[in-house]
Write a protein that binds this DNA or RNA. Structure first.
Lengths: 211, 211
DNA sequence: ACATGAGTCAGACGTTCGTTTCAATCGAAC
DNA sequence: GTTCGATTGAAACGAACGTCTGACTCATGT
């Protein structure tokens, strides 16, 4: 078993700390301390704190984007016109697959995605590649075929809703636990709830007629 | 027309900067510079940066929470068993009312709510009062009556979904003024779309049977 | 006229920030 | 054994951070 190299140790520590405290709230020193490496190693391997964040973000989102793309490929190979439920599953599923039930690192990964997506820091918004846009456009087009009569703007609104629910659900928007729900929701259960919730939402009749 | 006093000027500037750059990303000096007041005024009027955030957060959320509470009162006075659509409207509506179409300060308010709700900084989580919890519990109970057969955990999941959609949609509105969506950033249209989306989602059949 | 107290001011406190420097170290190629 | 590029080490850089101090302003009450 080979020890992780300095670069990987930095990425792991940064992933954890960015997820817990955000970009501005995490110092380079805290990262190198947790990683057990020298302070200058961040500058050497990544150039700057902002580029480190970009590397962390890419490492986390790449498998998700790839799974979304592969899922759509499979779906379209099976049937030319997938159902809304199938599309929701293929789009939202990979977010949950990164977080198996009881897997602490998976929970941290989800938390990281949310933190980065919602981080207002300028550095947290300029790391995306063209893949994310491509996948989103492909799903948009397929959803449009499955939901005729829905105006493009409203479809876009609903797709943002998918992202919102899958992502923000991972954060405890209510930071206080409700007395009604003391038990933590397991990953698999949340996945099924989200699919149910989002499939119904996506299938809603158009708010206003279009065409 | 009376000029705003120092305390209000600080609150206004802090609201804007916290919304744009988050808690950790905003310095006290940036706030006082924008407000045109002395640096020490923050310490004098609020004690610390964390307490300033709490004051900003309370000023923004209080009218929303009050409107949610009043809306539920009206609804229950009209009918003992409101529909899911009515409940969604009463719960999610006030978030949109804070952002009239074309109102820049309203957009900033929405952005601030999201930023504070999702800010991982410790200081961003200790400002809520008991009102938010009370209102949430009341809606939870009424939703539970309108949706028999839905497990409490799944109901809580769905209520988080409401917040996720209303909140994160505002982020996108504020940050991505893409030309395709510039016309739809109007508050009233997004409001109707959200109600449609969320009513369908809340009305979905339970994922698993309960009781 | 004078004392009072809330409010404002410039300035400095010690700390932490991201980044940089440069010497020391290592492994492999020659 | 020597050389050399790649990596790590300790230390320091200037800037910015949140907070605090003590003097100053000024309307108000006496």
């Amino acid at each position: 078993m080979a020890l992780p190299d300095t670069r990987t140790k930095i990425l792991d520590a940064a992933e954890r700390l960015f997820a817990e405290h955000g970009y501005s709230g995490t110092s380079v020193r805290a990262i190198t301390d947790l990683a057990g490496v020298n302070l200058a190693a961040v500058g050497y391997h990544f150039g700057s704190k902002a580029e480190l964040l970009a590397a962390v973000a890419r490492r986390v989102t790449e498998p998700i984007t790839a799974a979304q793309s592969a899922g759509l490929d499979e779906l379209l190979a099976r049937t030319p016109d997938p159902s809304v439920a199938e599309l929701v599953e293929a789009f939202a599923g990979p977010f949950f697959d990164e977080m198996p039930a009881g897997n602490e690192s998976g929970a941290r990964t989800s938390r990281l995605i949310v933190t980065i997506l919602s981080d207002p820091a300028e550095e947290a918004r300029s790391w995306t590649g063209p893949d994310e846009d491509t996948v989103r456009e492909r799903y948009l087009a397929t959803f449009a075929r499955a939901l005729p009569g829905l105006a493009p703007q409203e479809l876009l609104f609903r797709m943002r809703g998918i992202l919102a629910v899958t992502a923000v659900d991972r954060v405890e928007v209510y930071h206080r636990p409700s007395p009604a729900c003391s038990t933590v929701t397991a990953g698999e259960e949340a996945r099924r709830w989200a699919i149910t919730f989002l499939t119904a939402a996506m299938s809603a009749p158009p708010t206003q007629a279009w065409r």
